[in-house]
């Protein structure tokens, strides 16, 4: 049973990783707009440039 604290630590690290990933996505503006990206794919022409990573505000 002494493995439990170790497993909990591992579990917390993994979950903390997901939390960090979420906070990163949030702070880079990935949740700011849930509408436009869905429309963007309906646009036939290819994007004007490939530099399309979300930018920091």
């Amino acid at each position: 049973m002494s493995v439990i604290p170790v497993l909990i630590v591992i579990g917390l690290v993994v979950a903390g990783g997901f939390l960090a990933a979420f906070l990163w996505a949030l702070n880079t503006g990935q949740f700011d707009d849930a509408t436009t990206p869905a429309w963007r794919i309906l646009n036939d022409e290819p994007p004007a440039n490939d530099d399309s990573k979300p930018a920091k505000h």
């Binding site: 700011d32 707009d33 436009t36 440039n49 530099d51 930018a55």
Partner: peptide
């Protein structure tokens, strides 16, 4: 103009 990005809700 190098990049133009719309945020429609805002």
């Amino acid at each position: 103009i190098h990049r133009a990005e719309v945020n429609f809700p805002r």
